[in-house]
Amino acid sequence: MSEFATGDGVNTKDATLLSVRQLRTWFELRRWGLLKVGDVRAVDGLDFEMRRGEAVAFVGESGCGKSSLARTLLGLYRPTAGSIWIEGEDMAGFDRHQLHLYRRKIGYVQQDPYAALPPFMQVRRILREPLIVHGNRDREDQERKIRAALREVRLEPPETYLTKFPHMLSGGQQQRVVIARALILKPALIIADEPVSMLDASVRVEILNLLRQIQQQRNLTLAFITHDLSTVRYFANRIMVMYAGQIVERAPVDTLLDQPRHPYTQALLEALPDPDPDNAQKIRRLPKGEPPSLVSPPSGCRFHPRCPHAIKGLCEIKPPPEFPIAPEHGAACWLNQPS
């Protein structure tokens, strides 16, 4: 774990799997289905890279655009602008056939395992579907892969689960089937959108451990999307904090948790429950207000209406660029402007 927590396990240039440049996913708002009245800027100018074998957490409140980012990476939403480079190709320019091939490389683990599994299909059928869609017609080969995937997610012996319908499984088992489905096409990247937030606390750790083990064994790249900073520490190499469709701070996980430099990150960390009894009486400064409108985001720094350190005459006028603080650590906040 320490190897991953320090973030220096893999960092050669060649190891870059995914490179996102100026990514925008906007949704048109129309009145009566005709008149355009504006855009929902769910993802608004993202730049980041993900290396092979790396786990990156995207953290933010609900409505910050992290799920839209996941869906854009999955090819469910077409990016409005920008590019997503994967293995030397720009996914934003793919045609149908290329997109179909691209989908093999990406696995998707969803939030609500019960809703993510078609209730009228047995586990065998659920796991066979991706294989059929990608042209595998060999029954024996399918069966072998299905059993291997079930073993990999520790649903053993697989025979017990093959003929089960989703409602016959527990929440943890359902999520294991979801993970098995994400893995069965041998993807290079797994996108996990809040994979444990719907599960019982007792099962969460198991599922997180399982995901981490599989990620390490297969040297998978993992995009872990969550609102919960407390699960991130044990899981990710790097964290990107998102606010209103943009990345406001990025850093290796320990750096970010110990020395947050953006007021929003600081506020998120302070909102975490603290197990130290000495701090029981400490008054927490929670971020006031609500996430901003994505249709007409605040001018300047998007966090300035809620920011306790906002500098008048600067923050509400000029959007801050990302200032480098340390290698791999950057924060988009005027407070970090090198003086």
């Binding site: 469910l76 993510a116 489905r181």
Partner: peptide, 16 residues
């Protein structure tokens, strides 16, 4: 439904 989204994500076509 998420299971339809998942199917789209692994590449199932409209008819399927």
């Amino acid at each position: 439904a998420p299971f339809v989204e998942a199917a789209q994500a692994y590449g199932a076509g409209s008819r399927r």
